[in-house]
Amino acid sequence: MTSINLAALQQEGYTEVATLPEVLADRPMHYCPGCHHGIAHRLVAEALEELGQVERTICVSSIGCSVFIYNYMHLDTVEAPHGRAAAVATGVKRARPDAFVFTYQGDGDLASIGLAESMHCANRGEKLSIVFINNTVYGMTGGQMAPTTLPGQKTTTSPGGRCASTEGLPLKMAEIMAGLGGVAYSARVATTSLKRIVEAKKAIKAAFQCQIDGRGFGFVELLSACPTNWRMTPLQANERVEKELIPYFPLGVFKDDANDPACSVSGGDS
């Protein structure tokens, strides 16, 4: 039915709106219904195409649900050990300074296991970009508590809800990154509605632009839903991002040296 309609539509003078970026593979994704990874993949792909970086991009993928990103994007990809994407990306970028290098990491990967790698990479001001997907749980392994899990949130390893006095409070990675010297751009965005998606794309492009201009490290945190591990329907999970996540993890740009000459990166180059 679809193919017949398509041919007829094109003959009748219809044009497609919001076509898929060519760098995205046209194949079914393994993500759960309502997972925001697909939206994030598309935004990254659109940003890469619009900035003309596809041919020189090397993607560093992490461990987590997004481990198969190389199946969904036609990019050269290095698969990093759990948490070490930022360290691997440092090596890739230093060996191939002409390449555009970005990592795509989840919150268990970047904020827990790879916290040291990520923060030191940012602090060194490596000229690379990190796309950080924060869904407040370890998605792939079954919804365990992550460093970003909200207080009171029930997960498989915090069945009574996360307790702030024993497990601490969630890490606000975008703010933490903004406080480090080598970071040129740090922002937090969400993908729950079209308006937020447009803002998210702007942030991703700004972070990528930092690397293209050689200004330093670009970091974007995307708040994302995990309906399966939150034990919710996709629509409830989308709602939860708006009502629970955004009040704790405020959206916005926390550092942008393009607009603020006081925080421009000086030195640090080898």
């Binding site: 219809y14 994704m29 598309r42 079209l194």
Partner: peptide, 21 residues
Amino acid sequence: TACAACARICPDFAIRVFRKK
């Protein structure tokens, strides 16, 4: 109205929107 909000939010790229000239 061919705003393509559905196509942009679809995480599985299952929606295509065609605008009539």
